[in-house]
Design a protein around this nucleic acid. Structure first.
Lengths: 130, 130
DNA sequence: CTATTCCCTGACGCGGGCGTCAAGGCAAGG
DNA sequence: CCTTGCCTTGACGCCCGCGTCAGGGAATAG
């Protein structure tokens, strides 16, 4: 298949596919006229990349998964390097979520304090003053 | 005080202060030699900005707080516009944390599945095989 | 006088993942 | 032949909060 079809199948753009190729993540054979040609394996590879991207993985972090698939494994996460990325990402996410939760609570407290200071009359709880 | 001193007091850089000024967030008077001059009010204003920045607020989102302080209020969050930003940010944080938690769980599941598929022998639970 | 240390403005760089335009080639239909 | 629609490479733009360099002036100590 050609680049436009692959892009549509993966729900992305041709620009993105060329970008992945420039990063060495996606490969393509060329038709005599210079057009990129892809097969089902490329689609699976691309889907793997997109899934991880949707998880918030950086492109570089998808590389072990890609290489794992290229090595012939049925799943991109069948290799130790991919598992290592999973684990790093889990730790990263836990840290990030924890920090965000802290921030959330601090903001909530700031808001509550500021609302109290501003006077409770400005914060109608229900239809108490119709 | 001059820009270097203010920067150090606020734990930031002179570049940052000039940047804030270019964004219209921080103001300064000028000494006859052209040097920026600041007072305690500017320091408080700057601290307000930095606190919000540390929370992950974008610079533009600190503007209501800055204007509130400039209007003479003792706290930057004493104005309705600031409270509105707090509320938006809370909702944003809740949404983000929720999505990240979802991703975290999906990654954890992927990891667990991949570990099972790879074979449990590669995942020593304790010192079971010394 | 010089050396040091502050300060000034202006401008480019960076990271990440593309979007988007430019300028053209190739294939197929009418 | 022309048009349409796909494809090619190359290159600039964007976001955002600065870092960092270039090329100067100003104040102070020795």
């Amino acid at each position: 298949m050609r680049i436009g079809e692959l892009a549509e199948l993966a729900g992305t753009s041709t620009r993105t596919l060329r970008y992945y190729e420039s990063r060495g993540l996606l490969s393509s054979t060329r038709a005599p006229n210079g057009y990129r040609t892809y097969d089902e394996d490329d689609l699976r590879l691309l889907r793997q990349i997109r899934t991880l991207q949707d998880f918030g993985f950086e492109l570089e972090e998808t590389r072990p998964f890609v290489e794992c698939l290229r090595a012939g494994h049925p799943a991109g996460d069948a290799c130790p390097a991919s598992l290592a990325v999973y684990r790093r990402k889990l730790a990263e996410l836990d840290g990030l979520i924890g920090r965000l939760a802290d921030v959330r609570d601090q903001v909530a407290r700031q808001l509550a304090d500021a609302e109290r200071a501003a006077g409770p009359e400005a914060v109608p709880r229900c239809e108490s003053t119709p």
